[in-house]
Design a protein around this nucleic acid. Structure first.
Lengths: 106, 106
DNA sequence: TTATCATATGAATATATGAACATATGAGTA
DNA sequence: TACTCATATGTTCATATATTCATATGATAA
């Protein structure tokens, strides 16, 4: 049997997986997006709600939401003139929650 | 009782937590660092091992390891002329593993 | 149908990041 | 001690990213 430390059979991650994983973490790597997702733990919010609660420019919020929407981390629905955003990826939100808790307790 | 969507009691994350969390995810948000950490699932490797296995410049590996070391995601020990790196944060490595598996199955 | 309001988009800019090269460092060993 | 080798560091460059301002879009309500 071959030694683990010198294992010639090591299988690298394929490029697509690498891309998906890095993109996922990139979404969580920015303080503004973390603040938005953290707010969405509480429920559903319009762009304006988010903008006012977090004191961020409307366009900034909109740009970040587009990013999160492209990765399917959030979903939205229209109600009247407003568009309400909410979380749409349990797995990623769980990881965020875990990591926040981890950070809070150290 | 106040409506959830308009909750005046919402507690934002404090700045330090926000920083730690974003830094942690930043470490995992780059394909090169993911490849290095993924390799470290297999055990302990010298800078040269990593450089050769992953076909990366020595200085690039060294820079990335410093980043990971600053966040205490890896540790090292010297043996002879080489320095061997290994994982040093179970929690983060677990999250990486989870997310890789998640990506692989979708 | 038109006006209005909420949201999205585009362009510009400042900053952050990743990778490369050249070279310094410093422990091990001859 | 002096040399060598593995690793670390400083600098530079190209690219990516976050944010802002100005404006477009498009659905709703008058």
């Amino acid at each position: 049997m071959v030694e683990e430390l010198n294992n010639p059979e090591y299988k690298e991650l394929d490029e697509e997986t690498l891309f998906i994983v890095s993109q996922t973490f990139k979404a969580l790597a920015d303080p503004t997006r973390i603040r938005i997702l953290h707010l969405l733990f509480e429920g559903e919010f319009s762009v304006n709600d988010i903008s006012e609660t977090l004191q961020l420019r409307q366009s900034n919020v909109s740009h970040q939401l587009r990013f999160l929407k492209n990765l399917r981390l959030v979903k939205y629905r229209r109600d009247g003139k407003s568009i309400y955003y909410s979380q749409d990826d349990e797995h990623v939100m769980h990881i965020l929650q875990q990591t926040i808790n981890h950070a809070l307790h150290y």
